[in-house]
Nucleic acid binder design. Structure first.
Lengths: 347, 347
DNA sequence: TTGTACGCGTTATCAA
DNA sequence: TTGATAACGCGTACAA
């Protein structure tokens, strides 16, 4: 009868002993890393089976000098956006034989320590947006840990993957102008790299049409943040069309969650969207499609973003590529009904 | 001038040498694990600083016999549901000083191997729903790896955390009966543990009111899956009220994504929701609130689910508790407009 | 208060 | 074809 207390944690030494060989032979037999006589191999495999031996990941990593694992740092795990990116990332990482460690920095005190710890557990990592101070990024770069920046301005000696922002923002603004709107508001903070780019695109188009671009109203990139911003932007004067109404004809939001919040605010203020005010988002999260009015937005290829980051990281880790690379993924303007009911032809 | 090539990968030996002490002293100084003279400590710390030494996680783990990391296995990372659970899980794990490794099994061939690999990297893990065959779960249990099952029927010797399903399903069904509906359809597969529980609750109430409970129509738990199911359930006969219309008065969906898909199908078929057909979901994802009509649903405490799993796992790992525990978290019926415009009083 | 030496579980080199 | 044995980087008895 087989040893009934086998199971968790047999070592290669026990296997070797049981098979009557040395640990070197066991290793070779298991990894096909050298010649092993057929009979010997069989003995080894039987012993492995009987002890249900699995090489200790720690031992393997220590000996090989690699973790076979990637890290990814998020500013925040909430919302559909990051989940999709993670999905793409994990999928490719798994395909490449790497585990994925995640870290969310939201509300964390000692971010620096957490990131440092993570670095020690992986062969390379992805950092999202402005989740981490430049100093920390520098430290990682100096430690020669392969690094890919996601949706963040490129940094010396690190890869960057992001989606196109400025041009699609221009397309969005142009589309809104096509609706005939001439007064705009911008909702959403601008300290994050990619959102700044969006505002740049919008501003450029408006200026080009003789419209003085508004200052973006900073807010949290959540539904609640959008709601608050919406109250501020739309709630000012209930004034009709009297004195040229302070209320903007269109609110361009930093992302979909903000837009949904602004819609909530508009609804509460008795405003019709898009009749009284047009509202647009960014990302094309699931709720954008199902909201009423359905959200006009710019679709980011979120899974692809994660997938590409994983591939770029792999190249860096394997050393296939040593020069930093910067990749920009295309986005797509998705026109739905929140930007106006009767789209005019763009000139 | 400081050594300009310091940085990545100083070992404790180099620190010891630089400080003119032994590695044991370095370790003690860093971990406060034994007496160290003030002067000595200072020398050590200086050397650590100069070499920017960080103990190798591998070395530490190997020596301590622990990873300080948790794993979590998802069936699928897409959608808002899992992201929220992950958020709660990661938050608590970080608080407890553990890293988080994730694994998604969706579309993976060798799930068993992936899970095995993950087990080797963590001190304990959480497995979500029926992502993994019973055999694999058994194997994990046998390996004495602390294990918490999430939204899955309890298994011998493993913890379980899930949210309440049957009673809230009864409440939902009762509410719908209060609207006066008498013909129902159920959309969503029933092989997953928690959804089966929901159907059980619904069936019980319907039976109790003399209504023959319908068989659930299996479908993928996605918007697309819901759309397909919706076409089937609602598209049958366009027949008016002629022969007692085959079309159900209410469609109870396995989750919100399915419900959103069914709404899409209804819309496409020219049906008014809830005028022609009432539709309900489950989970209360973000889109549920913003959909039009806003979705009546059952809110699961998703973050809490993840957080509780992390705490339960911690107890198991620390050995604070050795007997398996099963926890059921309360849910909440969220009545919005998709189930009917004029809610009657429940008797 | 400090240092020596062993253990943790592999991989891989080099001799035999 | 096989086996000793040296890394890998750390924690920690135990001895000094």
């Amino acid at each position: 009868m087989p040893n009934s207390d086998e199971g968790q944690g047999a070592t290669i030494y026990e296997v070797a002993q049981r098979a009557g060989v040395s640990i070197a032979t066991v290793s070779r037999a298991l990894r096909n890393t050298g010649p092993v006589a057929a009979g010997t191999r069989e003995k080894v495999l039987r012993a492995v089976e009987e002890l249900s031996f699995t090489p200790s990941r720690l031992g393997v990593s220590l000996a090989q000098g690699r973790h076979a694992a990637n890290g990814i740092v998020f500013p925040d795990l909430s919302g559909p956006y990051f989940a999709e990116v993670l999905l793409g990332y994990e999928e490719v990482a798994a395909e490449l034989g790497r585990s994925v460690l995640i870290l969310s920095t939201r509300g964390r005190a000692a971010v620096q320590d957490l990131v440092r710890d993570l670095v020690g557990r992986v062969d390379g990592m992805v950092i999202f947006g402005r989740t981490v101070e430049d100093a920390v990024v520098d430290e990682i770069v100096k430690s020669r840990t392969p690094l890919v920046l996601l949706a963040r301005d490129p940094v010396e000696r690190a890869d960057a993957v992001c989606s196109e922002n400025t041009a699609s923002a221009e397309a969005l603004a142009t589309h809104l102008l096509g609706h005939g709107y001439s007064t705009f508001a911008l909702a959403g903070g601008d300290d994050l790299g990619d959102i700044t780019q969006r505002w740049t695109g919008v501003r450029r188009v408006l200026s080009g049409h003789g419209i003085r671009p508004p200052e973006p109203l900073p807010c949290e990139l959540t539904v609640e943040g959008g709601y608050a911003a919406g109250r501020t932007l739309l709630g000012g004067k209930t004034s009709g069309k009297a004195r040229g109404a302070r209320r903007p004809q269109a609110v361009i939001c930093a992302d979909d969650q903000v837009a949904l919040g602004v819609i909530l605010a508009a609804e509460e203020l008795g405003l019709d969207v898009p009749g009284d005010v047009a509202i647009t988002g960014w990302d094309d999260i699931m709720a954008a499609r199902h909201a009423r009015p359905a959200l006009t937005t710019v679709r980011q290829p979120m899974r692809l973003l994660g997938a590409r980051a994983a591939r770029a990281l792999d190249e860096l880790i394997k050393g296939t590529r040593t020069v930093p690379n910067s990749e920009i993924l295309p986005t797509q303007l998705i026109v739905r009904s929140s930007c106006g009911s009767h789209p005019l032809e763009e000139k």
